[in-house]
Amino acid sequence: MSILEVKSLSKSFGELKVLKEISFNVEQGQVLSVIGPSGSGKSTLLRCVNQLERADGGEINVCGVNMMHTENGKAVYAPKKTLREIRLKIGLVFQNFNLFPHKSVMENIIEAPVHVLKKSKEQAKEEAAELIRKMGLMTKENSYPCELSGGQQQRVSIARALALKPDVLFFDEPTSALDPELTGEILLVIKELAKEKMTMVIVTHEMEFAKDVSNHVIFMDGGYIVEEGDPAELFGNTQNERTKQFLRRYKGM
């Protein structure tokens, strides 16, 4: 069973078609990178799958549960209860972290386990302590987000997403708000998760990283999937002119 199935997904903002018949699957344990120029629809795709944006048509299934499909040319979403259940199977790490500034690191991580999953505070804290250790934030559990570096904040937000034990973790340009040095520590964390066979979908501008960590790459442009495949193949030996052009510009930088 695929963790995520997307079939001919489409989305427009007014007249502008942002996603045009996008289809792809994510399998258990897969690490998928989505690359492409700005405005190619990568982030919108992620937001549609995460229910932050409503798709206009197509079909999305998460862990075999239908989230939305199309009937008579109109997008039909699953009942609210189902959508909520699906949401809990999914974690999202934002580009600019979106930590809760009035809550400490520990409080940020246990917020959802305690108030959404209704776990006891003790149990949630125990599990959070493990995540905090894993993210290398041992001394920071009582700090507030404003006291942390960007890299540390992003690690907290990864821990916060993992605290719900999601089946798949999405990253929306997780390193774009960070300088190169801090980018390294986030990439390291993601690599660790990949080793543990965490299923991940990563929208990124870090080509080297996409090549390194993922086992499948999608290249998007103008709302289409231009090419997808094995990273070594796509980065090293693409036959597609548009992909070549895009990668050349990145290497030139």
Binding site: N50, Q51, L52, R84, R87, L88, I90, G91, L92, F94, N96, N98, L99, F100, E111, A112, H115, V116, L117, S157, R160, A161, L164
Partner: peptide, 12 residues
């Protein structure tokens, strides 16, 4: 708006 989205993603 990211605060609302983060809370939404956590199932709140």
């Amino acid at each position: 708006v990211g605060q609302y989205e983060a809370a939404q993603m956590l199932g709140m």
